[in-house]
């Protein structure tokens, strides 16, 4: 045990040494010694500091990991929500575009009344081309009404109607036939649906000149359809001298497989042509003077 006197001396020596060192430090005389100590202690300090920081980071990392997982889950949910929203917005955008085009058509053709309908089904038979609409007799649909889409394009005619749905026979159904007139040349013919889903214009007289890309419009002949609705565009002409008529293959003005929304013209009255002969009055014998 150090005695009290010696302790006092020890205190004084250390205090004095400290004061000397303070003085030397202030005078810059201790710098080399300090550098030596720093170079030895520095790495140890960094290692120890790194160790403690590492432990601190480890605890921090666990905390961060928990936060990141929560954040990740939150972002994934947000991402899913955004993807759903994008898909929904794209659908709305497409629908909006279709409806705008249909609206333009209705504004350009105010003489007609329209019923908008969505396509809810297609014919399960590969041989028949029908679509099912989500509007029926409750919405004023009747058999024979023309069905159009944007750009005054004729799609087909209402064939069967139930209370809240209707079946539309598309133009490319093999049993569909529509009278048409080519816009530029004025040539008339009959557009019939083909088995492969294409359109064929038939009964064109052999001397008629058909320009490629000429647009086929409904002629209104027969009174079944309004005049001037677009049916398709001439794609290729088949003309053989041995035939009585020439034919033209048409490009459909719309993709019938991609129809989503259509307009039914509800105030067009198809003309029922009565083919039964009306009795003519018997010529009465006039007495000759």
């Amino acid at each position: 045990m150090i005695r009290s006197r010696a302790r006092t001396w020890l205190l004084l020596v250390f205090a004095l040494a400290a004061i000397v060192m303070l003085a030397l430090h202030e005078a810059g005389q201790l710098q080399p010694v300090e550098n030596v100590f720093q170079s030895v202690l520095g790495p140890i300090e960094r290692a120890v500091s790194g160790l403690f920081n590492g432990i601190g980071d480890l605890f921090g990392a666990v905390r961060d990991l928990r936060d990141l997982r929560a954040r990740n889950a939150q972002l994934e949910t947000q991402n899913q929500d955004l993807l759903t929203e994008i898909a929904s917005l794209r659908n709305l955008q497409d629908e909006n575009q279709i409806l705008r085009q249909l609206l333009n058509f209705t504004q350009e053709n105010p003489q007609y009344q329209y019923q908008t309908a969505a396509v809810i089904g297609r014919d399960p038979s590969p041989y028949l081309k029908f679509i099912t609409l989500n509007a029926g007799s409750a919405q004023g649909l009747r058999p024979g009404m023309p069905v159009v889409t944007a750009g005054a394009v004729l799609v087909g005619r209402v064939d069967q109607v139930s209370l809240r749905s209707a079946k539309v026979q598309l133009l490319n159904d093999p049993s569909s036939a529509v009278n048409v007139r080519l816009q530029t040349s004025g040539v008339t013919g009959l557009v019939a649906g083909q088995q492969d889903g294409s359109l064929l214009m038939q009964f064109i007289s052999l001397d008629a000149e058909i320009a490629p890309d000429d647009i086929a419009l409904t002629s209104g002949l027969g009174g079944n359809l309004p005049r001037g609705l677009v049916v398709g565009q001439v794609d290729a002409v088949e003309k053989r001298d041995v035939d009585l008529f020439q034919t033209a293959r048409l490009r459909a003005a719309t993709d019938y497989d991609r129809l989503a929304v259509v307009l039914v013209i509800t105030n067009f009255e198809p003309v029922e042509i009565d083919v039964t002969p009306t009795p003519t009055p018997e010529p009465t014998a006039t007495p000759t003077p």
């Binding site: 089904g121 399960p124 038979s125 029908f130 064939d159 069967q160």
Partner: peptide, 13 residues
Amino acid sequence: IQDLISGGPFGAS
């Protein structure tokens, strides 16, 4: 059921 959905002659399916 299919004939109800289809626009073809009823009974064909």
